[in-house]
């Protein structure tokens, strides 16, 4: 009989822990809808791949670049729209994007702090100047015509065309 109080207390703690995100979310309700405000490059309108792909999978692109540069000495990247870039985090990416004002904000929001890119790479001093700031909003799905990948299953599961993961710049 006396153990009921312990059981109920234990249950209450459990429920409190489980529902903690709700209480917290209600407290900060105003801020929640706000996605991180990113500083977009002033001088460019298009990244090396479509935005949707870059948001979800930029790390895969970076890993592929690293491998190709370090192992295969492949430095040229031909983007989906035919533009040619250098496979270079410091020059190409950080040439447009600012680490603190771009990378870190999303990373902090998504809980992916400090990937080990930064153990080697630095933000160049003359970083991109921030001109336009925009809240990151969900992008509309790319038009079906944009699909390039033959891999339809993957593209259906991910909801957007499987991106031009660069295997080889050619």
């Amino acid at each position: 009989m006396r153990d009921r109080i312990w059981i109920v207390a234990g249950l209450a703690v459990f429920v409190a822990l489980i529902t903690a995100p709700f209480w917290r979310a209600r407290r900060d309700v105003g801020d929640l809808a706000k996605l991180p405000v990113l500083t977009l490059p002033a001088n460019q309108t298009q990244c090396v791949a479509p935005v949707a792909y870059m948001r979800a999978s930029h790390m895969k692109l970076l890993m592929a670049w690293r491998y190709q540069v370090v192992r295969e000495d492949e430095r040229k990247y031909v983007a989906f729209n035919g533009k040619v870039y250098q496979k270079n985090l410091t020059e190409t990416c950080l040439g447009c994007h600012n680490k603190e004002q771009f990378c870190d904000r999303c990373h902090a929001y998504a809980g992916v702090p400090s990937p080990y890119c930064w153990s080697c790479h630095n933000q160049p001093q003359a970083g991109a100047s921030a001109v336009s700031a925009a809240a990151l909003q969900p992008q509309a799905q790319p038009a079906p015509g944009a699909r390039r990948s033959p891999d339809r299953l993957l593209s259906r599961m991910s909801g957007w065309p499987v991106s031009p993961v660069p295997r080889r710049a050619q």
Partner: peptide
């Protein structure tokens, strides 16, 4: 098959905030 984590988080937070 990467998903957009930002959208997922926004969705999760919005659920939690009712």
């Amino acid at each position: 098959v990467r998903v957009d984590v930002l959208s997922v988080k926004q969705f999760a937070l919005s659920l939690a905030a009712f």
